[in-house]
């Protein structure tokens, strides 16, 4: 799935004027921050409207969703009166918004648990799994991308790029199945089921069972980020400071490792923030495939049983996390590279 990088046109706004750069940049940054945070709040508000609309798009409305298709008209009327569903839509939305803000996402139909409790129990495990995949992926993608950039347009670059497209085109679940077939069924190296348990400690106590889920989650990230890293490094290799450093007698290897690497990591680190929705999607598939007790599996089970409060609660939490992720990415990038501050409209 594509993740568009925000436009960076009109880039040279803050910090370009040479005298008194500190004050100019500070003021520019403060304004940038306020506008960017406001924008994020607006987006979250729109997301909440979409989720609220989905709640009302349920066949027969939320009341039928909870009570089932056999419910009588009287039962539905009673339920709607008890839950404020007979109020005007705008009031209902405001009360939904108020409850969501205080962390009240409703009750699961089936789990005998509030939605926020169900999510709070599983979210840390999902973050652990995606975090591990991410670390593994970055450790592979960064050196591969730099290596490709240094060897650009040679055979090895060409083959690695093609391999990245193949990996990107492989559905995560198919990759996971192949790994199960090869490493679990045939070679018998790792178990095919993910670690079970309620807490993070229990999950971490079964490292061999974590290998296949982490690997499956990591491959698509490697495919994407090795491409980012390659192009970011290529951009920097053409910069004047590289020529200067080389002219002053710095070795090629040292220029790449000390100067180019640090500068090319900035956009790639920021990309991680924009990549969050893709990672959540990946977690859903990996958790379902390996039966890992995280938020993705919670969501999938809820979809199987039409447990709408859980479904919509998860969507809300994930969307807010995504908005915050891209906000952080923009802010980190603006701190590290003032040229990007003008990109916001």
């Amino acid at each position: 799935m594509t993740t568009a990088i925000p436009a960076q046109s009109g880039a040279v706004e803050a910090g370009a004027a040479a005298p008194a750069p500190v004050r100019a940049a500070r003021g520019g940054f403060g304004r940038f921050l306020i506008r960017r945070v406001l924008q994020a709040l607006v987006v979250i508000l729109v997301v909440s409207v979409i989720v609220f609309a989905l709640l009302h798009a349920l066949p027969g409305g939320p009341a039928r969703g909870v009570l089932g298709q056999q419910a009588t008209e009287e039962q539905i009327a009673a339920f709607e009166a008890a839950n404020g569903l007979d109020q005007p839509v705008v009031l209902q939305y405001l009360s939904f918004l108020g409850r969501s803000l205080t962390g009240d996402l409703g009750e699961s139909y089936l789990l005998n648990q509030s939605v926020s409790d169900a999510i709070a129990l599983r979210l840390p495990k999902t973050l652990l799994l995606t975090g591990l995949s991410l670390v593994v992926a970055v450790l592979i993608a960064v050196p591969v991308g730099v290596y490709q950039a240094v060897r650009r347009n040679r055979a090895v670059d060409y083959w690695l790029s093609t391999l990245a497209i193949v990996a990107y085109s492989t559905p995560t679940f198919f990759l996971g199945m192949l790994l199960i077939l090869l490493l679990s069924q045939t070679a018998g190296l790792f178990p095919a089921a993910a670690p079970q348990g309620t807490g993070i400690a229990e999950v971490l106590a079964q490292p061999d069972a974590l290998v296949l889920p982490v690997l499956t989650g990591a491959v698509p990230i490697v495919a994407t980020f090795s491409r980012y890293m390659r192009s970011a490094t290529l951009d920097n290799l053409g910069e004047d400071y590289v020529r200067t450093a080389r002219a002053k007698g710095t070795g090629r290897r040292r220029v790449v490792l000390r100067h180019v690497l640090r500068n090319s990591l900035t956009p790639v680190v920021a990309m991680l923030g924009y990549y969050l929705p893709v990672m959540f999607g990946g977690a859903l598939v990996v958790e379902q495939l390996f039966n890992y007790p995280g938020m993705g599996l919670l969501f999938w089970s809820a979809a199987q049983s039409s447990d709408f409060p859980v479904l919509l609660g998860c969507v809300l939490v994930i969307s807010v996390a995504t908005v915050v992720g891209s906000l952080l990415a923009d802010v980190v990038q603006a701190v590290l590279d003032p040229r990007t501050r003008g990109g916001l409209r």
């Binding site: 987006v43 989905l54 929705p277 959540f280 999607g281 859903l284 999938w300 979809a303 969507v315 994930i318």
Partner: peptide
């Protein structure tokens, strides 16, 4: 922006 914030797979599962 709001649409992009909701990962497509999750939205599709809810819709289906």
């Amino acid at each position: 922006d709001a649409g992009i914030a909701i990962p497509a797979i999750f939205l599709l599962l809810v819709l289906s």
